[in-house]
Computed example of a mutant assay.
Amino acid sequence: MTDNRDGIKLFLQYLQIEKNYSPYTVEYYQGDLLEFSLFMSEQTIAKWDEVEYQDVRLYLTKLFEQKLARKSVARKISSLRSFYKFLVREMLVVYNPFAQVSIPKIEKRLPEFFYEEELVALFEACDEAEPIGQRNRAILELLYATGIRVSESCSIRLKDIDMELSTLLVHGKGRKDRYVPFGSFAHEALERYISYGRREILTKNKKEHDYLLVNFRGGPLTPRGLRTVLNSIIEKSSLNGQIHPHKLRHSFATHLLNNGADMRTVQELLGHANLSSTQIYTHVTNDYLKKTYMAHHPRA
């Protein structure tokens, strides 16, 4: 049996190389595994193969005692279940003690999205006279035009963009590539940023690489950096609250469905493996339709 740290190291390598998970996702898995490893130490459990079902139940009780959200508990259990499944596959343990643990039901919340007038306020908050403002406008237009994930946007290289056909090659989860079209607004913003803003940022910092999105120092923009950029944009706008990349992704899907796009097309554009992942947006659009009906029908 390998050392506990070796087991975690092997699993994280598996997630990065075989599963092609983003650094952000791998970081979450690592945190969950280290936390459980600490619990094992508290229970004087030395090795992964010494963990039994009753230990898992005790750990689950401890998580609920910490008053964690059900979503957080579900994620931790899911991480550990996947980890043990990997250990069984590699014949490092005999069985998976998490296999029979039921993940607590998560309360389904409707995805938040921006209304079109809110998006206009965001776009107008970007000062396109400055290179950073051109980059920020390009980020907003790109995320809203394509609905891509934050990890996918940060991995885009110039060679992935076909300006002539207005399409983007997206490297999705599990090494699944897909082509996503983008419209005239995103085309114009990308062209301006690539030709002027990006070039100026790289030249000023004496950097040279082919990643599309760059930080103010000229290096490739990270998912964490992108979130910071989006929050800085909303602070300059007339909107309140926080913004996150998935809210733009949700807006992309919701607005497509509201305007008559079919579910299968939206599924393909989002890169969802299962249609069930896309179907949550029908609840949003149904809510939107009801509000529109109540507001405008004379006998509502």
Results as ranks from 00 to 15, higher is better:
Met40Phe: 08
Leu12Lys: 10
Lys19Pro: 03
Thr278Val: 12
Glu112Tyr: 07
Val73Arg: 02
Met91Gly: 08
Leu256Gln: 06
Ile156Arg: 00
Leu119Gln: 12
Ala273Thr: 04
Glu191Leu: 05
Lys176Ser: 13
Met91Cys: 05
Val94Asn: 09
Ser232Phe: 05
Leu190Gln: 01
Lys76Asn: 00
Glu118Gly: 12
Tyr14Glu: 03
Ser276Gln: 09
Leu140Ile: 07
Pro23Ile: 01
Tyr59Trp: 09
Ser166Phe: 02
Arg70Gln: 08
Ser195Pro: 11
Pro97Ala: 14
Ser238Gln: 13
Arg135Ile: 14
Ile106Ser: 01
Arg89Gln: 06
Glu27Cys: 05
Glu235Pro: 09
Thr2Gln: 07
Ala261Tyr: 07
Ala300Leu: 01
Asn259Cys: 10
Thr25Glu: 13
Thr146Gln: 10
Glu65Ser: 12
Thr254Cys: 07
Glu164Lys: 14
Pro298Gly: 02
Leu169Pro: 00
Ala125Cys: 09
Lys62Leu: 12
Ala129Lys: 11
Ile201Phe: 08
Ser155Ile: 11
Leu158Cys: 04
Tyr144Arg: 07
Tyr144Ser: 08
Gln267Ser: 01
Pro97Cys: 06
Glu208Ser: 06
Gly183Met: 01
Tyr293His: 12
Ala138Cys: 06
Tyr21Pro: 00
Tyr293Arg: 05
Glu117Gly: 05
Lys247Ser: 09
Leu226Thr: 10
Asp210Ile: 02
Glu141Ile: 08
Glu90Trp: 15
Ser78Thr: 14
Lys71Glu: 03
Cys126Phe: 04
Leu119Ser: 12
Glu116Ile: 15
Leu165Tyr: 09
Ala99Tyr: 15
Leu33Pro: 00
Ala74Val: 01
Gln13Thr: 09
Leu257Glu: 04
Pro111Arg: 07
Glu128Lys: 14
Thr61Met: 09
Val88Tyr: 14
Leu110Gln: 08
Asn274Gln: 11
Asn259Ile: 05
Met163Ser: 05
Glu130Asp: 12
Ile156Phe: 04
Tyr21Leu: 12
Phe39Val: 01
Phe83Val: 14
Lys173Val: 03
Gln242Glu: 15
Leu256Pro: 11
Phe123Pro: 11
His283Asn: 15
Tyr288Pro: 00
Leu221Phe: 08
Ser277Met: 11
Ala74Leu: 04
Phe216Arg: 03
Asp162Trp: 00
Ile148Pro: 07
Tyr115Gly: 05
Lys76Val: 00
Gly197Thr: 11
Glu188Ala: 03
Gln100Trp: 04
Arg249His: 10
Arg299Gly: 07
Val56Gln: 06
Phe182Lys: 06
Leu212Arg: 00
Leu257Gly: 06
Lys108Gly: 10
Gly147Arg: 15
Leu256Lys: 10
Leu158Thr: 01
His171Thr: 00
Leu92Phe: 14
Ala74Trp: 05
Leu38Met: 01
Leu12Arg: 12
Lys291Trp: 03
Phe252Leu: 11
Ile106Asp: 04
Lys105Leu: 02
Phe185Met: 10
